[in-house]
Design a protein around this nucleic acid. Sequence first.
DNA 1: AACGCTAACGCAATCGATTGCAAAAGCAAG
DNA 2: CTTGCTTTTGCAATCGATTGCGTTAGCGTT
Lengths: 342, 342
Amino acid sequence: MADDGPLKMADVARLAKVSMSTVSRALADNPLIPEDRRREIQRIAAEAGYVINQSARSLRMRKTQTIGVVFPLGHDVGQLISDPFFIEMFGRLADEITTRGYQVLLCRVTDTSEGWLNRIIQSHRQDGLVIVGQSDQHEALNQAAESYHPLVVWGGHLNGQTYCSVGTDNIGGARRAVDHLLGLGRKRIAFLGMLELPEISLRYEGYVRALRAAGIEQDPALVIPAHFSFETAYEAARELIESGTEFDAIFATSDIIALAAIQALAAAGMDVPGQVSVVGFDDIAIAAQSTPPLTSVQQDLAKGAKTIVDLLFKRMAGEDAPSATLLPKLVVRKSCGGTSAG
Amino acid sequence: MADDGPLKMADVARLAKVSMSTVSRALADNPLIPEDRRREIQRIAAEAGYVINQSARSLRMRKTQTIGVVFPLGHDVGQLISDPFFIEMFGRLADEITTRGYQVLLCRVTDTSEGWLNRIIQSHRQDGLVIVGQSDQHEALNQAAESYHPLVVWGGHLNGQTYCSVGTDNIGGARRAVDHLLGLGRKRIAFLGMLELPEISLRYEGYVRALRAAGIEQDPALVIPAHFSFETAYEAARELIESGTEFDAIFATSDIIALAAIQALAAAGMDVPGQVSVVGFDDIAIAAQSTPPLTSVQQDLAKGAKTIVDLLFKRMAGEDAPSATLLPKLVVRKSCGGTSAG
DNA sequence: AACGCTAACGCAATCGATTGCAAAAGCAAG
DNA sequence: CTTGCTTTTGCAATCGATTGCGTTAGCGTT
């Protein structure tokens, strides 16, 4: 019984024959109320099926017990968050956040006009923000971070960056991947990815450095723009193949792009790793299962997510947490030939 | 300038030299305020970087512009939401929800003690709920639906169900899959899945009906409990193989389980589809990419998500939307032999 | 009995918006 | 200049909790 109308705290107070103040304090386990009475009130509230109205609580306390997770997608707007990498990151973040007793609000940004981030921040819907991927919003992030502290970004560490970020050493990871290909004797290495994205441009930097260190001249024809979706990446790879440009290896800036490239190569009758070696980035779960299994630069998402959330909570507590960089690891599988040559 | 302190509506009122009431109405595009004045006030607010505080708004309006998406996971508690099927469903739901101007709150239920659903509902953090998968909470759902209307469940349609659900015809889908295996001449068909979950038990029902219709006696030794995670499913398949029980086909109740089974079979030196045919369920993206490509019962998630959200919004508007069933489709690939025999 | 001190408790203000209702302003007709 | 009507505008109550501060109760001393 008594589960008809939505119960308010005043109702519980009436039931327990005390004031609202006392109920509020009792439910909050405030030691101002003697322990036995606290228990009693909690029991009465639970029995009546009473639950604190979070809207009211949030307003009064000026906190929501909620963390917003944002995927800017300044590029690829309106798309489903489909890349397994993002998805896994989201899952891990959700785990870390809920473990700490907070809720997760997914913010899909559909309107990236001037001030989009400020609009999210000022809505006060969340106590802190995780931004997954800088997209092309570096400047907006810098600006927002100036006055809003509880904010951590997953992405590369860029020049003139004032916000707190957590990310893999993109340059180093790419460098290691390309070095590996070079070690296998590959010389015409194609680069697939969108240079407009900061993280990708860092990977490009690693690619360039590896080539330079090996004394190999880089060929602009080998740098191909490719989005994160399977279809567009497949298309990009197909064009590379049909262009007639010679190449003996592909460094793809995400596993999805790598897998799409392998399919495109197979469709064109080219053997992987016989004719072309392929390396991906992220080391998502499917990488190990594909045919052939994919060599990839592994990002430790579990650790990344934990670091992000740790830093965020520090910042929410007013401390000033610094950015962090994770070390990538090259996982060698069959897609690039020799099991561990080089 | 003027982006230091969090602006309140009263501040905007002062800037615009009108009362708060007028600002509130202007920002809400209330025709009570003449259009030109509305525009003017909106401009002033935007320029000042003002954003409505959602906590306050939610409290007063008794609505949050937020939909909660819940993964009960009564089984497998504490796990990351890792199954690609759930993930894709989440992404599609998020798309449908944000498209309608609502936010998405992910509710990971960590405490399934008595009244967990009521606790979510009464917190008033959301205007409506989508529950993904009944888990083992059929009764709790039935009870909650009695007094809480804006709630739609993804899952099977069960006996004595009073809540609104959207789901694939599980019995029919399973029936079609098993019929296909039978058509290939398979007779010893193993069933991998957790019967405790309502949807899976419906798929079992389809499995049983198919066998019965073919006049084949079912063998309890062929029914193997298997969770949704790759590792546990792999273990389950390995045990089936090592048990020595003879079988020439596997009907897996999810693609992840099917993929794990294929790996386990390969590890045991058994050929798919030569010796054993395998069929999965869901037709997730990887299914087409695996080796061999997986035959699977396709669930149309895009349509499912749209239907769920459509029904939910109808219910939020007070209408009484009925449950819906989607028709599954068997996608035949190489993992079960003949390209389309049967 | 009077006093002092602490432990419990409740009053009422507060968080920041929305909105019913009444007042004010604007305008046309008499 | 009234009167009567419509269009604008603002006052003040409200949503449902939390909490600073003052009051009351309870108990031990002298």
